[in-house]
Design a binder for these strands. Structure first.
Length: 527
RNA sequence: GGCGCGUUCGUCUAGUGGUCUAGGACGCUGGCCUCUCACGCCGGUAACAGGGGUUCGACUCCCCUACGCGCUACCA
């Protein structure tokens, strides 16, 4: 059976984390494949990895799975072109090098690193373009013997064209043209026999029958040398599409994991990070910058983001359908995606806009889904048993209904810990306590009066409490504001929150009374 | 240095020679709603990097400059 017309790949290095920019690249590949009914392949670029590949790959695969980006071939999936780890494909690369050597498109180079470097430096000093003299190029067996007799060791270099142009069409950039003479005789094989990126990448793209290479723009200048390799090997050229990179918030520098400290100086970025850190602290997650960092996908999963929100946001980072559509379901984005609507300029990562997608997606969730999302946070923070009791679930549901748009991240449920704390251990915000109770004698008196009618309230529902409170203020001849704040602070410890009647109903009659009594007692003690 | 890519509101973007006194979204902001906060609603702010062409007409085409970024590795 003929392979499908579209086969694309994403080739991560096993670094131990999934970078948000990488996700965007993978997403575009994935969408392109799904749109065309093609295949998306994951290949592991581990040619240069000393570390434990399996361990370093797991977070990347977990990240993709969480985001709903699935691959048709690759680690964990197998496929007709296995293995999908470059570290296990050395023989294939060695074979390709041999072929290149035999055809005269590559040569053994016996230069010593310092000799080569000296040539380069000389060129730089004279401000002329460096082109290797090929002094130590060995093309015959005699050459090899001679150089080896000198005790030299060899690597393999590409014997690049030195005239003419490399022309190709890029689906995002248009027609591209590079002078061949601008290319170096790149090394493709080290003296220990291991091969370098350009070689392995091209060989695998060929072997996997990759139809379209969709990757970040930093690879654009690499394309001529890769085309050279592919042509020299007699491979069919893939179609290229180079994506703009994802930039730092408010800058055109490429987003990098290493610069967290710097990003934290950006206000919006810091807000996001602090929001996450607050949640992480409460669930006892140790926030190491290696994994807990807004350029890494794990960060978002840990604090309760929705994969769909992240994907939707990333989709619009360098791509748009028209001048207004912003919300895309998976089906819609697969349906509408096309490479020709990709932007050419770098797109900077905007934490605020990401957050606005997240909020919208969160609000739209069904109540049951929301409860399930939020429960693990309460469990980790010690506010609920695992598994949560029916009582806890129904309380959580009430809170979520009342809190409504106030919860954007699943971890935000921890902002409402007052509903899970014991009456005697509730903490009061000092400022609110002073303003609404200690320094508010009239309000306090009203609070005492109200407290005394609460025991007689049979129906403690929000609707009924609404009535009771309104009747109360009417009879007292005061505004609602005179009583609401005092109650809120007394029973939640906080100055702000959602509707007071809902709060009272959720906390319940006994607890409300207990908390009011306790608050009043604390006021006495302070005076 | 050489080569390449890019440049519309603070940010993501729409715009492919006249419909652009440049549209949408996020943000910011004024007001309304209101028991606080949030939501919601109504309104506001704000951009074609600069200079030359081409053209009756340029955000759109060409050239130059500036700025940013990338490649120029026995990294990927």
């Amino acid at each position: 059976m003929a392979p499908p017309l579209v086969r694309v790949r994403f080739a991560p290095s096993p670094t131990g984390y999934l970078h948000i920019g990488g996700v965007r690249t993978a997403l575009f590949n994935w969408l392109f494949a799904r749109h065309h009914g093609g295949e998306f392949i994951l290949r592991v670029d581990d040619t240069d990895q000393a570390r434990n590949v399996h361990e370093a790959l797991q977070p990347i695969m977990d990240g993709f799975k969480w985001l709903g980006i699935d691959w048709d071939e690759g680690p964990g999936m197998g496929g007709p072109h296995a293995p999908y780890f470059q570290s296990q494909r050395s023989d294939i690369y060695a074979e390709a090098v041999k072929k290149l050597l035999e055809a005269g498109h590559a040569y053994r180079d016996f230069s010593k690193p310092e000799e080569f470097a000296a040539e380069r430096q000389a060129a730089e000093k004279e401000k002329r373009q460096f082109i290797y003299s090929r002094t130590w190029m060995a093309e015959t067996d005699e050459d090899v013997k001679r150089f080896e007799a000198e005790g030299r060791e060899s690597i393999v270099r590409l014997k690049m064209h030195r005239e003419g142009k490399c022309e190709f069409h890029d689906l995002v950039r248009g027609d591209m043209s590079f002078e061949w003479r601008g290319e170096q005789d790149h090394v493709i094989q080290r003296k220990d026999g291991s091969c370098l990126y350009h070689l392995t990448s091209v060989v695998d793209d060929g072997a996997f029958e990759i139809s379209h290479v969709i990757r970040a723009i930093e690879h654009l200048p690499n394309t001529p040398r890769q085309i050279f390799i592919a042509q020299s090997l007699g491979l069919e050229l893939p179609i290229y599409a180079h994506l703009p990179f994802v930039a730092e918030p408010g800058s055109s520098n490429k987003l990098s994991k290493r610069k967290l400290d710097k990003y934290l100086k950006n206000r919006d970025f810091k807000v996001l990070y602090d929001h996450g850190e607050k949640i992480a602290e409460q669930i006892g997650f140790s926030a190491s910058p290696e994994t807990f960092n807004p350029v890494i996908v794990d960060f978002y999963r840990e604090i309760g983001f929705l994969p769909d929100a992240i994907i939707n946001y990333l989709l619009l980072l360098g791509w748009s359908l028209d001048d207004k559509t912003e919300d895309f379901t998976r089906e819609a984005m697969i349906q509408d995606f096309s490479l020709d609507r990709i932007t050419k300029a770098p797109a900077s990562f905007d934490p605020q806009k990401l957050m606005s997608f997240q909020s919208r997606y969160m609000w739209r969730l069904d109540m049951d889904e929301k409860v399930e999302m939020v429960l693990p946070y309460l469990e980790k923070a010690g506010f609920a048993q695992t598994p949560a009791s029916e009582e806890t679930r129904s309380r959580v549901k009430s809170i979520l209904e009342a809190a409504n748009e106030r919860i954007s991240l699943a971890g935000d449920i921890l902002d409402y810990s007052e509903f899970f704390q014991a009456d005697h251990s509730l903490e009061y915000e000092e400022k609110a306590f002073r303003k609404r109770l200690v320094n508010a004698e009239a309000q306090r008196e009203l609070l005492v009066k109200l407290r005394n009618i609460l025991p007689g309230v049979e129906d403690f529902s929000a609707e009924h409490l609404d009535q009771i409170l309104h009747t109360f203020v009417e009879e007292e001849g005061v505004g609602m504001g005179m009583i609401v704040h005092a109650i809120r602070v007394a029973i939640t410890g906080k100055a702000v929150g959602f509707g007071l009647f809902e709060i009272m109903a959720i906390i319940g009659k006994d607890a409300c009374i207990n908390r009011i009594d306790r608050a009043l007692k604390l006021v006495d003690q302070q005076q």
